[in-house]
Design a binder for these strands. Structure first.
Lengths: 259, 259
DNA sequence: AAATCTGTTGCGATGAGCGCAACCCAGTTG
DNA sequence: CAACTGGGTTGCGCTCATCGCAACAGATTT
């Protein structure tokens, strides 16, 4: 099982793989951190390697070790760094807008950005619903995410079609219709400032999203609200407009002077 | 200037020094990032080294490069890592703080988060008292919970008033006075970092709570300590300050850089 | 055009990190 | 008790990834 990858900085990649494991893979249950062997097995790496890497990371404050259970978790330094990243500002500015939406409809409201062909959720304002999956920090393929419609709204139609053809599930008919649906959705997002879509992977029934623009007018993020039940058409439109309004106000707060 | 330190993992240290520089600059002004040479000089390292390291970091999403100014700044991946583990870490890290408070005052200490308009208690640290009600996993309306004052501290006043008018029990006089009391409490929480309130549904006589902020600067939770007897004013203030201190330290441990 | 300032890259020497295996330390089990 | 299991650490040669220099390539400035 000896890897002969071309090269880059292998150490960095190893460290980041470890941090990714420690960040917990979405499933929230295991809250006590993880042990060396478990991580090593999960990554398919040598225990010794992981052990040494973790000690180094601990020395730098990137991870912490529970002195009694001897398990590792992410450390203070990582969080301190994250606080200084560009995204932190975006999050702070958007918080009140998300809160407003979350309480107005009592549904989860999210702020998402596009990273490559993945949609990354930066913030989730939870509703009062019983139990909810945590999406913060999680990436999903852009074509699977409701917010994807808003994030791609400004793309060249050709590029969108390319992406869809590469990524859309193969079934021919559904793919073609899916593609047309997508183009219509993007059009709707551009025209009305919001777009509704049924959601593929969330447990919600539908979602509405709206693009957020930065000071240059580029789409920097998307607000998305997931709906547990699909409302009647007029109500859906009303919700859509509310979200579009929020997105526009947020854009203004970010320095976007509305065209 | 060739370093001959004993060294453990030198690469990691180098990478983190670079990230620190990118994060650093303390000042919040319009930093559009830093160039290779500047960073190299600041760290006393070879340009080439820094250049290569940065490219690797960029490839992993730890830093991003402005395509026009060619300057680097912290990337999305740090933020995503932090956001993903935030919830789990909150529970872990808060435990010692809660325990310290619980033993210091011999009163129950709780960690609560906001879900929509409900307050959910994640952790309860029991005092030595005989009778102890279990709150973990229990949701109560935000306006009924002592911790609510801390959790809403960052809300815009209009939004709070909206919520109160919708939810506060109808009796006209009490509602109005209740509303004013609430706004005063929120003000107190913001100014002093803690707030005391008499409790509506607990069997305790009063409670003190304090807001906890995460790496994004958002109020992620509240520490609350319920008091069996209302102490004299000076003592109450002392307790409040202790809780505020705990909350501040916990915030720091979560990566909140107190601006 | 020369001078600077930026950032990237080719290359040989060398030392840091890899993987294996041995080891330590607790708990379990027979 | 000895044998076993599963967690984690460490000793040690071998190899290859990284270091630093110096040359290079663009932009800007003089």
């Amino acid at each position: 099982m000896s890897e002969k990858l071309p090269v880059s900085s292998a150490g960095l990649r190893r460290d980041l793989e470890i941090l990714d494991v420690l960040a917990g893979h979405g499933d929230e249950r295991d809250t006590d951190g993880f042990g060396v062997s478990w991580i090593a097995q999960r990554l398919g790496r040598e225990k010794s390697q992981v052990s040494r890497a973790l000690r180094a990371l601990e020395g730098e404050g990137m991870v912490e070790r529970d002195p009694v259970t001897r398990r590792y978790r992410l450390g203070w330094r990582l969080f301190a760094l994250a606080a200084r990243s560009q995204q932190a500002r975006l999050v702070q500015v958007s918080a009140p807008f998300l809160r407003r939406l979350a309480t107005a409809f009592d549904e989860d409201a999210h702020l998402c950005v596009l990273r490559g062909d993945q949609v990354l959720t930066l913030v989730s304002m939870p509703s009062s619903r019983a139990y909810h999956r945590i999406w913060e920090g999680v990436s999903v393929p852009v074509i699977m995410a409701a917010a994807g419609r808003s994030l791609l709204a400004d793309w060249e139609p050709e590029r969108v079609r390319e992406l869809l053809r590469a990524k859309l599930p193969a079934g021919l008919d559904s793919a073609v219709s899916g593609e047309e649906q997508w183009m219509a959705d993007l059009d709707h997002a551009r025209t009305f400032g919001y777009v509704a879509s049924d959601v593929e992977l969330d447990d919600s029934a539908a979602a509405v999203s709206a693009p957020v623009r930065d000071h240059r007018g580029l789409i920097a993020a998307a607000i998305s609200v997931s709906l547990a039940r699909v409302p009647a058409a007029p109500r859906l439109e009303e919700i859509g407009r509310a979200i579009a309004d929020s997105a526009r106000d947020l854009s203004t707060a970010l320095g976007h002077s509305s065209h």
